[in-house]
Amino acid sequence: MEEEQKWIRDIQRRGSRQAADKLVRTYYDEIYRFAYRQLGHKASFRTWLYRIAAHKAIDCRRKVQGNILLLEETETPDQTDFAAQIQDRDLLDRMEEYISRLDPDTQAVYRLRLYGERTFPEIAAVLGQPEAAVKTRYYRLMARLRKEFG
């Protein structure tokens, strides 16, 4: 649909809430019925959306081969700060590459906790796993990252 593509471009380029609203309203009833059939009363719609977001983040990271930081994109004239930015960016890229090779549930726990700022009970609800299992997965991953990256 041509109009749908226009809305998506408006959202991406300008962060247009009006375009996002139109896009969501177009599919709202259809998606709500689908989600209700999938979830019944097992989880909230919000939980379902977080699960989608977590899986989309995993998919995106699998496709990305690395980010390039252009000199024009840095606003700091201080060379020391610039070097630190490059090192931090390199470390984050290496960590993301490492994490993207892990199983999807571990990736989801990591991203929901750090990027989504979700609590362990929230992550457990999204993934449909016991909270203790989510905590164990997260803390084991943190130990592996400390060992691997210092």
Rank of each mutant, 00 (worst) to 15 (best):
L92K: 13
E96S: 13
L127Y: 02
R101F: 13
L92R: 13
D105K: 02
R111F: 15
E117Q: 10
A84P: 00
E117C: 05
D105C: 02
R113L: 04
R118A: 09
L91D: 06
K135H: 01
L112F: 08
D103E: 15
L114G: 00
A143M: 07
I123P: 00
I99T: 12
G116P: 00
E122A: 03
A133R: 07
A125T: 08
I123T: 02
L112I: 04
D78Y: 09
L112T: 00
A108N: 08
P130M: 04
M142G: 01
D88A: 14
V109C: 01
M95G: 03
E122W: 03
V109L: 05
A84Y: 10
V109T: 01
Q85N: 09
A83W: 06
A124G: 06
Q85M: 14
R89S: 13
E96G: 12
A124M: 01
Y138G: 05
A132N: 10
V126E: 08
L127M: 06
R89Y: 08
Y110A: 12
R101H: 15
L92M: 13
D88Y: 11
A132M: 04
M95T: 14
E131R: 07
Q87L: 15
A108C: 05
A83C: 10
V126R: 07
Q79E: 14
I99F: 05
R137C: 04
E122Q: 12
I86R: 10
D105N: 11
G128P: 02
D103Q: 09
D105Y: 03
L141F: 08
R111I: 14
E96Y: 10
L114C: 00
R111N: 11
D88F: 12
A132W: 07
F120N: 01
A84G: 04
G128K: 06
D78W: 08
E96H: 10
A108I: 01
R137A: 06
Y98F: 14
L127F: 02
D90W: 06
E96I: 07
L91I: 12
E96M: 15
M142V: 09
Q87C: 13
T106S: 08
I99M: 11
E117D: 05
Q85P: 01
A132E: 14
Q107E: 11
T106P: 03
Y115W: 12
I99A: 12
T119R: 06
M95Y: 08
Q107W: 01
E122D: 06
Q129T: 06
T136I: 04
I99Y: 05
L112C: 05
I123G: 00
V126S: 05
L114S: 01
G116R: 02
G116T: 02
L92I: 14
Y139W: 07
E131F: 04
